[in-house]
Design a binder for these strands. Structure first.
Length: 263
DNA sequence: ATGACTGGTGATACCAGA
């Protein structure tokens, strides 16, 4: 059995205490973090080492973005894509060694895309769609079982947001984003593990704004995902969203996802 | 419906997040 988790931590240095609590309570073998907001030299390696997460691959940058995959089972860095083609640290891939030898885990932080859902008026929205386009061409050529996970910054299903109609023009849930993410899914036949285990239309949010008027009304969105190759999806045995972390002191605005695989 | 949030920074205003 291998347990894999993903969490947009929104500054790993600020929230290392919460990461420690999460690791002790959920005990994943592998944890993929997004928005670590630090360069690799300042990543809290010693704290992870002390917890037994002795295998770490960090793709950081100063102040913004950044991803890291830490593990208590052996792994090696496998890939490092720049799907936005602008130097930002938004992806790192690893290949597990040891008990789950050969499993590839792609840790990705898809750009948020700015405020205006129009690539002519908003460069960031175009970059988000282009990022997905490059991911799709990559997925089309994939030839081995893979788990891709992280902060996708898109809530694809109507029931992945608190009010589908109200959010149709809000970046993260616009039809063009949902369609573009759908093309990525179809390029490889990815299986959305969140919905395999918690079928639509059940509530399944992973993000709530820091703004109180959204949080207090449970106006969440499902922006974080774990998608598996079809043969790997058949090995997934349990999946959970650890929603309680959103109620901890000084929390990340995202909560972790955890999946157990029988491999 | 969404303004009243949060983190990082050669920073004590501004950018970015979504």
């Amino acid at each position: 059995m291998v347990t894999i988790a993903t969490w947009n931590i929104n500054s790993v240095r600020l929230r290392m205490g919460q990461v420690e609590r999460f690791l002790s309570e959920q005990a994943p073998d592998v944890l993929c973090l997004q928005e670590i907001k630090t360069r690799e030299e300042l990543f809290p390696h010693a704290a992870f080492e002390a917890l037994g997460y002795t295998h770490r691959v960090v793709h950081g940058q100063k102040g913004y973005h950044g991803v890291a995959t830490v593990s208590r089972i052996p792994l090696r860095e496998f890939s490092r894509h720049d799907w936005q083609d602008n130097g930002e640290a938004r992806h790192v891939g690893v290949e597990l060694l040891g008990p789950a030898k050969g499993l590839v885990i792609e840790n990705v932080y898809i750009p948020a895309g700015g405020d205006v859902p129009d690539r002519e008026a908003n460069v960031k929205f175009g970059q988000k769609l282009d990022f997905l386009g490059r991911m799709t061409r990559w997925a089309d050529a994939l030839d081995r079982p893979t788990l891709i996970l992280g902060d996708f910054n898109i809530a694809p299903l109507d029931c992945d947001v608190y009010d589908h109609k109200a959010l149709l023009k809000v970046v993260s849930h616009t039809p063009v984003e949902v369609e573009t993410l759908g093309a990525f899914r179809d390029a490889h036949g990815w299986v959305d593990l969140g919905r395999q285990h918690i079928p639509a239309p059940e509530r399944n949010y992973s993000w709530w704004s820091y703004r109180s008027y959204w949080r207090e009304k449970d106006q969440g969105r499902r922006l974080d995902h774990m998608w598996a190759s079809p043969e790997l999806a058949r090995e997934s045995r349990a999946h959970r969203i650890v929603e309680e972390t959103r109620r901890w002191d000084q929390p990340s605005d995202h909560v972790p996802l955890v999946t157990e695989f029988s491999i």
